[in-house]
Design a protein around this nucleic acid. Sequence first.
DNA 1: TTCAAGCTGAGAAATATTCTCACTTGAGTC
DNA 2: GACTCAAGTGAGAATATTTCTCAGCTTGAA
Lengths: 152, 152
Amino acid sequence: MPINQLRQALHDQGLKLTRSRLAVLQVLAATSAHLKVAEVHRRARQIDGRVGLASVYRTMELLARLRLVKHVHVEHRHRHYARIREHHGHHLVCNGCGLVVEFSDCQLERLTRALARRTKFRIEGHCMEFFGQCRECRCRPASNTARGKRKS
Amino acid sequence: MPINQLRQALHDQGLKLTRSRLAVLQVLAATSAHLKVAEVHRRARQIDGRVGLASVYRTMELLARLRLVKHVHVEHRHRHYARIREHHGHHLVCNGCGLVVEFSDCQLERLTRALARRTKFRIEGHCMEFFGQCRECRCRPASNTARGKRKS
DNA sequence: TTCAAGCTGAGAAATATTCTCACTTGAGTC
DNA sequence: GACTCAAGTGAGAATATTTCTCAGCTTGAA
């Protein structure tokens, strides 16, 4: 999302495009992997040394609300986020290097309808993620540092 | 899973069926909702007052390894687990009362194959969950306490 | 330039999870 | 049933993440 479009999106909710938010966005724009909050913070500080950890938490939450970013349910102790580019995107995550590939043809409409009918639920959403090894990591199984990303 | 079958499953890995594990299993057998660890602990103590929190954490992890239980990715601060009854079960979770309905016809084989081909990943697993409101909660939208389960 | 929300950084506080360790218990064997 | 010992336990300390607080700063509109 171009900056001006984002500024507009923020503005529509009475929010501002600030220094910290810009730094976090730059970090996200520069990676294809999912990142934990502390790592986003570390990288944001390389762009703007004044960015505080609390602001990164606040910004990630804001971006999640704006659907620019989403949780990735990796089995770590800390929360990981990945950028969303496509609307209604799902994620395929590499267990080796953290690379995130997005896809949107989830084809779950039929399943959703069938489930709703069977269970009498009103279904409001779903989450779906795939895990595996990307091509690079399959060829280099011993190392976890592809693309300069270290697993936490 | 009947107790003897579980005892066997544990035994196969050199593990024991202990007091604490039994208490936790009884708690899980008695609910259809997902529970956070602290709640499992509270209930387990009602069955056996000696059960410690650390043991509940250890037991939940063990049960997850045995695929008798799985994480539910609710957006809470703490980890929630739900029982698995069917093999390869997926979960439909009520946002109101926490009720968990299992289903297994996820029909993702085709999508998995297509994704693997397109991305060159070796796909090793997926997680899929649906969220919504169960029939009871839709009819009683103000209350969150259906089935005696309080949201945390 | 001024102004007022919104936002910030720093550090404290809260809270979930893991670790440690001496003690206990389950279950196999006799 | 008694014995044995590795697996498991409870309690509380330790750790780590996330949230909160608050005085001061920034953004963006007028």
